[in-house]
Nucleic acid binder design. Structure first.
Lengths: 225, 225
DNA sequence: GTCCAATTTGTACAACTGTACAAATTGGAC
DNA sequence: GTCCAATTTGTACAGTTGTACAAATTGGAC
């Protein structure tokens, strides 16, 4: 018997899936990374799909619970702009920071979600839709109250962009380092969180009724060519 | 001899890769979708990796050329805000709209890029870094001139978020439809382009020296828990 | 028609995949 | 120590993978 081989298998599964996707990682890869045999995986999880489901359920519940908790705190802020900022942090921070201690970190799991979402893995898609949409809806509602007059479409699209920004920051951090000529560290997760929050703060805030306050008349050229 | 089997193979490769990723799609899948035999793929392209390289080179050059062209037009606009908007459109539109006529559309290729980027495919990564970074750098430079006083880090991070938003809008459009309760169509690409441009316009504009004009004092709660 | 290079097909190969299951091992209860 | 259930290992299986290559087919030049 091993000191929690099962935990090690789950952890390594997240790491490998987040790095190369679902299909590129074989059960033997996961077993090897854990110093174990292939059979241990079918013993503990039954199948590759069930292993994935277990990984999701392991992280999803505490992460969304933490989001709800921080959302609750944010909603107690009366100033609309400061509340908006706090709501955005409540959504982003748990995706980057480990929810329960020692489970490998929220960032790695979020990166895995990003990859599996891109791969269109049907198992993952069902789980995601079930587990995350409700939380996302609660956030959109909270955001809407911070930006009176904002159209629903704008809110939903911007929440989509927020998630996409989150994902891509984790998937390809080296691009940030490269494009900045090395002056910015794309792997600095605290900086990433702040940048994401500030950028989406601006994008949500611009949806307000008094949008374009001193800004552009939004009369850009639309025609193509 | 077929009417351009080679073209059909390339087209179907993009479609299938963009749908399920690189590893999940076998050469036999691509052949079957094209009504051809596996051998035709090794004959025309030599290997799966070389096929991928060919797909990239097929779309990359005209897409970035179109971007540069639109960027050139945008740079002739004197008003900084309107120029900013035009630059963003110059980056986004070619990713959604087919560059050369009838090559399957830029959106499908962009979706494929998104998926392969997420999968961390090493072949794709090298090609992307080579082909796209130079164009991205030119855009960042152009954007910087629209927002005097903006720190480089803010510009680079926001250009990262722009790309992430772009990618995720193509990868998971159904989420938009779902979260909006069906009132917004996530597959409406024209709407997606406009939303992406407007959202990132706001995020870039907020980087300006006179940022937070009438806005929040940016003194949000930073501590964790 | 003949000819021939380009193309397409069919098939074979070794390597790897997820899964199943018998055998071996472990470690605590007694 | 014995015993036994839980765990881990080893191995076998059928199916799929990318690749290689000989054979068949194509279609235009002559």
């Amino acid at each position: 018997m091993r000191p929690n081989l099962r935990e090690a298998l789950l952890r390594n599964a997240v790491t490998l899936f987040s790095r190369s996707g679902y299909n590129a990682v074989s059960l033997r890869d996961i077993a090897k990374a854990s110093g174990a045999n292939v059979g241990s995986l079918t013993y503990h999880f039954g199948s590759k799909a069930k292993l994935l489901r277990e990984v999701y359920e392991r992280h999803t519940v505490p992460m969304n619970a933490r989001r709800r908790e921080l959302l609750g705190e944010a909603l107690r802020i009366s100033d609309a702009d400061q509340r908006l900022m706090a709501i955005l942090r409540a959504y982003v921070v748990p995706a980057f920071v480990s929810s329960s201690e020692g489970d490998g970190g929220g960032a790695e799991f979020t990166r895995m979600r990003a990859v599996l979402s891109a791969e269109g893995n049907p198992d993952a898609q069902a789980i995601i839709a079930d587990a995350f949409d409700e939380t996302s809806r609660a956030f959109i509602k909270a955001l809407a109250d911070c930006v009176p007059g904002a159209p629903l479409g704008g809110l939903v699209w911007r929440s989509q962009f927020l998630l996409g920004s989150l994902y891509y920051a984790l998937i390809n951090p080296d691009r940030v380092t490269r494009l900045s000529g090395g002056t910015v560290d794309g792997n600095d997760r605290e900086a990433a969180v702040n940048q994401i929050v500030e950028a989406s703060y601006a994008s949500f805030r611009s949806l307000g009724a008094e949008a374009g306050q001193s800004a552009a008349p939004l009369k850009y050229a639309t025609e193509e060519k």
